[in-house]
C-alpha cells in the first residue's frame, strides 16, 4: 500500500514536472487546421518552376505595368527572373532580396521572409508573420508586424491544387497580381 502510494506520488511529481516544464517553454503560434490543410493542398514538392505574369497597378499611373518571367522556388530561396519587358533576376532568400546589380536591397529581409513564406507555403513562417483568413479559394494573409503593416495591407494566395495567383495589396493603394502557370514540377536545380 505504502509502496503504491509512493509510486503514485512519484508519478504525479514527474507528471507535474513535465507539465510545468512544457508550460514554461514558449509555444509557437499555430494555424487553424483548415488553413494548414489549405496550404498542404497548395504545396508542391520543392523545387519547382513556374511561369508568371505580373500586373502591377500603381497609384498615379494611368495604366498597369505588366511584366512576365519565370520563378524558381526552392527550399532555401526563390529566383524571381523577370524576362519582359526588362530582363532582371532577383534572388530572394532568408538574408533579403538580392538583385544582379545590388548585392542586397537594404531592409528587404522582412519582405523576403514574407514572400518566401507565401511562395513556399511555409505554415510555421505564415503563422508567425500573418493573421490568416480563408475566403473561398483564397487565403488572405494580414501582416502581424507593425514594421510591415505600414507597407503591406494584405497578401492573397489563391488556388486549390496549387498557387494560381498572388495578390499583394500595398498600403499606398498599389497592388500587384501575379498569376502562375506551372512549367516543371520536379528536377530543377535552384541556382
Amino acid at each position: 500500500m505504502m509502496a503504491s502510494q509512493a509510486l503514485r506520488m512519484l508519478l504525479s511529481l514527474l507528471l507535474s514536472a513535465v507539465l510545468l516544464g512544457s508550460e514554461a517553454r514558449t509555444e509557437e503560434p499555430q494555424l487553424a487546421p483548415e488553413v494548414v490543410e489549405f496550404l498542404q493542398q497548395q504545396q508542391q514538392p520543392l523545387p519547382f518552376v513556374v511561369e508568371f505574369e505580373q500586373k502591377r497597378t500603381i497609384q498615379g499611373l494611368p495604366r498597369p505595368l505588366l511584366s512576365s518571367g519565370q520563378l524558381t522556388i526552392a527550399a532555401d530561396e526563390v529566383i524571381w527572373h523577370t524576362q519582359q519587358p526588362l530582363d532582371q533576376k532577383l534572388v530572394i532568400n532568408a538574408t533579403g532580396i538580392h538583385s544582379d546589380e545590388q548585392p542586397k536591397l537594404r531592409g528587404s529581409e522582412v519582405i523576403a521572409e514574407l514572400l518566401l513564406a507565401v511562395l513556399q507555403g511555409d505554415a510555421n513562417a505564415i503563422a508567425r508573420n500573418f493573421a490568416t483568413e480563408l475566403q473561398e479559394e483564397c487565403l488572405v494573409l494580414t501582416p502581424k508586424l507593425q514594421q510591415l503593416q505600414q507597407f503591406v495591407a494584405s497578401i492573397e494566395s489563391c488556388g486549390v491544387a496549387a498557387i494560381e495567383t498572388i495578390r499583394l495589396v500595398e498600403q499606398q493603394g498599389n497592388q500587384s497580381v501575379i498569376s502562375f502557370q506551372p512549367k516543371a514540377a520536379v528536377g530543377v536545380e535552384a541556382q
Binding site: Q59, G60, S67, T82, L90, S99, S108
Partner: peptide, 19 residues
C-alpha cells in the same frame, strides 16, 4: 531611369507618390 524601371517590376512595395 533604367534602375527605376527595374525597380517597378520588382515585388517590393513602393511608398512614395510616383508622380
Amino acid at each position: 531611369i533604367a534602375q527605376a524601371q527595374q525597380r517597378l517590376q520588382q515585388p517590393i512595395p513602393l511608398w512614395m507618390d510616383i508622380r
